[in-house]
Design a binder for these strands. Structure first.
Lengths: 241, 241
DNA sequence: GACTTTTAAATGTCTGACAAATGAAAATCG
DNA sequence: CGATTTTCATTTGTCAGACATTTAAAAGTC
């Protein structure tokens, strides 16, 4: 682990050196890093600089710190939960900052969900189906705010994704599904459109229950088409006003 | 933006407050944050604490800093490239630290790729096909190391993903495809297995060229089956030795 | 008007200090 | 001897102040 002291951004260099050591396996999970004072000496920098480097790593969940004697910085096992969270934050920002069109985001989301549908249909977990039915029921309640409707929509689709029973897939798709919520929240749902969506959700759940993967894909395609049409009409309506 | 000064981890609280302000849109892209000294005064903490918070945000590419008069910290537009990078780092660590089985990782990867195939087939970009053919050609060169073969394999699959012509999709899948490389690198490829893989790659490229999405999916399924079988036999071989 | 110099503002780094937490070791007590 | 309490060294968290370096605007010069 070497750094170039003439270059500014010493803390970034140190962070990268330690990150590389973790990725390459030189530092293993739960291993304790040297104390801040020791690291400062090793890299020939001040303790503050080391601390800034460690904070960078902590922000990426690569390390966790503990105070007190025998405390210190430890290599953190990146859990699925933490990875989900990072994924969602990054995806949300990416979509909101890069003027991604609704159509493109929608296409990506449904393409990914269609990848899950056959697996979910093959596994037919009772848990998944119960969640899907519960969310469908919630969505058909009158008096639900648009935000609550969208949140339930996200929960329904997450259930479908998790139903594939593959944690790697769930992690990869968490961002795609959750990041859509702010975009969906911009849509005002009429009673008519809610009814249509609930019907399609029901058809998807039915297909999954029957173990009919291709059928679920077809229903997802129908839902994608309807969502895009709905968004277009809402946007057009808003442009007129 | 409020923090609780009695709680430790002030820098984490400050980082979260600023991050929330960015996500919610209170701070917009390219907007300049107050200087470190001003932030220190606002939050009633020392400058070092503010700096640690800012380094956390910098590690997530949420801000960038510039030295000199009229410099400071600016809200960063999260580019696709930066998002790719974060995605790949996180995915790689997640896979290496959580004992994800080859089968699960493989299932996720191919499920996602099958989601791209129909879109890539519909778009049939010349660029995509050229890259795929070039990588296939490279893969059939004798004397290629296993690492180089795997790297070319990743490049081929990235071309397929990028061929869907949807940047959001490309971003989401970058992690899935790239993170597989270390796992694939563990496999020793015989001349026979390389030939088989090259043939399947050729079939996939042909299907894309013809605009035959379902055909490409079928070939991807065959490739998934073959990859899993290959990995199993290599693992079994290694267990014996 | 074009070029150079000055200057103020900002980040980057260092030093030294103290507070707070924490687990181990030592001391105390029943 | 065993259980409990106290002490203590270590480590992170935070602060204050200082200086170096960079940078662009402003002032000065030819």
């Amino acid at each position: 682990m070497k750094i170039d002291p003439t270059f500014p951004d010493l803390s970034a260099q140190i962070a990268r050196a330690i990150r590389d050591a973790i990725i390459s396996g030189d530092l293993i999970v739960d291993e304790r890093l040297p104390s801040e004072a020791e690291l400062a000496e090793q890299f020939a920098v001040s303790r503050s600089t080391v601390r800034e480097a460690l904070k960078r790593l902590a922000a990426q969940s690569l390390i966790r710190t503990q105070r007190g004697a025998f405390g210190g910085a430890f290599v953190n096992r990146l859990s699925y939960e933490e990875a989900y969270g990072q994924q969602i934050t990054t995806s949300t920002l990416l979509l909101s900052m890069n003027a991604v069109s609704f159509d493109v985001a929608c296409e990506a989301r449904f393409a990914l969900e269609r990848a899950c549908a056959p697996l979910a249909a093959a596994r037919r977990s009772a848990d998944t189906l119960a969640t899907m039915r519960a969310e469908i029921h919630r969505q058909s309640q009158p008096g639900l705010t648009d935000e609550a409707f969208c949140a339930s929509d996200v929960a329904f689709h997450r259930a479908l994704v998790d139903g594939a029973g593959n944690p790697v897939l769930s992690y990869q798709l968490a961002g795609a599904v959750e990041a859509m919520q702010p975009l969906m929240n911009m849509i005002t749902f009429t009673a008519r459109s809610r009814e249509e969506i609930v019907t399609l959700h029901g058809a998807i759940a039915d297909a999954i229950e029957k173990g009919d993967g291709p059928g679920a894909c077809r229903q997802l395609e129908a839902l994608e088409r309807y969502t895009v049409t709905l968004a277009r009409s809402v946007m057009a309506e808003r442009a007129k006003a």
